[in-house]
């Protein structure tokens, strides 16, 4: 196997460990669970790029 393919496999392996093991475990910690619940309660998508992606805008605009 060429060096390039080995490098690709290594990066994929690292990503699999992070997204498959580390992040799911982090998600079970109390801090992250509380933060997730808090965001859901406020209808916030922290990754929203534009206001139409924010669920809470429907509520805010409806109140006006």
């Amino acid at each position: 196997m060429s060096h390039r393919r080995v490098r690709l496999m290594a990066v994929i392996l690292v990503m699999l460990v992070i997204w498959g093991v580390v992040l799911p475990r982090l998600a079970t910690t109390r801090t992250v669970r509380e933060r997730t619940q808090w965001l859901e309660h406020h209808q916030i998508d922290p990754a929203a790029m534009y206001y139409t992606e924010l669920p809470l805008m429907d509520r805010i605009l409806a109140d006006e």
Partner: peptide, 29 residues
């Protein structure tokens, strides 16, 4: 990748992960 709840909770948008996916391929194979 962007949809994992921990990633999502800390404002790391899909643009970053889309770039990463492309960069991993272009800079390895």
């Amino acid at each position: 990748l962007a949809g994992q709840s921990v990633i999502k909770a800390y404002n790391l948008e899909y643009a970053l992960w889309a770039l990463l996916v492309g960069l991993v391929i272009s800079n390895t194979i």
